[in-house]
Design a protein around this nucleic acid. Structure first.
Lengths: 154, 154
DNA sequence: TTTTTTGCAAAACCTTTGCAGTTGG
DNA sequence: CCAACTGCAAAGGTTTTGCAAAAAA
C-alpha cells in the first residue's frame, strides 16, 4: 500500500477509489489491490490474473476473495464482466471511457473501439428495436475480413 | 431410435442428419439423439439439458459423451455455441435459418430476430470496420427500453 | 467495539479425459 | 472385422461458500 504498489497513478483508479467510498465499501488493502490491477491492465482481466497480481507486478491475493470482491464491485457498478467467449471470467473497470470490442469468432482477434465510433449504430438499433446496445460487455462478433475469405458462405 | 423419439419431424433435423453423414460421422443413436434435442428445442440448449433428454422428452444420454459429441459437431460445423453470459455452455443447430439474438444485460430478456433484419447493420459494420458481424453466437447486448429507463446514464 | 472483510479450506459445478466394452458400416 | 463411438469413472479447472481470524471505521 505504499509507493511500490502505485505504479499506476491513473485517473481511472482515483475515480474508482472515490466511488468505492461512495458505496460504503471499505478502502481495504485487497479492495485497492483489485482496483489497481484493473486500472493497470490494458484490457479485461481474468480473475486469476488479478489474484496473481498481474504476473507479479502487484502483490498477489487470495483467489476466493478476489471472486467475492469482484462480485461485490459488480453489484455496486464499479466493474463489469466482459464476455469474450468460453474461458474464465474477465472483468474491467466501469467508467465513461469504456471501450467497445470487436471479436473475430474464427481467429480470436479483438479490437477495441471508442464508443463514439458506434454511436450511429446505437441510434439505429435503438430506433428500430428499442435496445440501447453496448459492446463493452459482449463484443460485436463476427468474421474478420481474412477469416471471412477463408470460410466462404456455405 | 424408433417412432417414439421422432416427435420432431423437422426439416432442420433431416438436414443435420444429412450433413452428419456427409462428414463421415456415424449415425449412431447418441448422435441422432443430440441432433433431435437441438432440433426440438426452440433456442440454444444447455449441454446438461441435452444429456437430460430435454427434461425427459427424449431419452437421456451420458453427459461426458454429449460434451464430446457437441465438440465434434462444432468442429464439423453442424452446431455452434451460443454465448449468452456466464452460465453453462449452450448450443444450437447450425443452419441457414439461424436466428440472431438481442439480449438485455439488465433483465436478461432475449429476443430472436431474422438475420435479414440486421443486414443493413451488417453492411454498415463491414464497410466501416471490415468485420462481418453475426449475432447468432454472441448476442447484440445492451439495455432494453424498460431497463434503460430504470438505470439512467451516470 | 462493531461491522466488514479476509484467508483458508471444503464443496459445488462445469468440462475434459482415459479406457475398456459396444456398435455401426 | 475395424474404426468409430459410448458409458463410466476419475481428473482438471473454475466458481461458490462457511467460518474463524483480522482489519477498517
Amino acid at each position: 500500500m505504499t509507493v511500490a504498489t502505485l505504479r499506476t497513478s491513473d485517473v481511472r483508479l482515483d475515480a474508482a477509489l472515490a466511488r468505492l467510498r461512495g458505496c460504503g465499501l471499505r478502502a481495504s488493502a485487497a479492495h485497492r489491490l483489485v482496483l489497481e490491477c484493473l486500472a493497470a491492465a490494458e484490457g479485461p482481466v481474468t480473475v486469476s490474473a488479478v489474484a496473481g497480481g498481474l504476473d507479479g507486478r502487484l502483490p498477489p491475493s487470495d483467489l476466493g476473495s478476489v471472486y467475492r470482491i469482484l462480485e461485490t464491485f459488480e453489484r455496486e457498478g464499479l466493474v463489469h464482466r466482459v464476455h469474450l467467449g468460453g474461458g474464465p471470467a474477465r472483468y474491467e473497470l466501469d467508467g465513461d471511457d469504456e471501450r467497445e470490442y470487436l471479436l473475430c469468432e474464427c481467429c480470436g482477434a479483438t479490437r477495441a473501439l471508442d464508443p463514439v465510433q458506434l454511436d450511429d449504430v446505437r441510434r439505429h438499433i435503438r430506433a428500430r428495436f428499442g435496445l440501447t446496445v453496448r459492446f463493452s460487455r459482449f463484443p460485436m462478433a463476427g468474421l474478420c475480413s481474412r477469416c471471412a475469405g477463408a470460410h466462404p458462405p456455405r
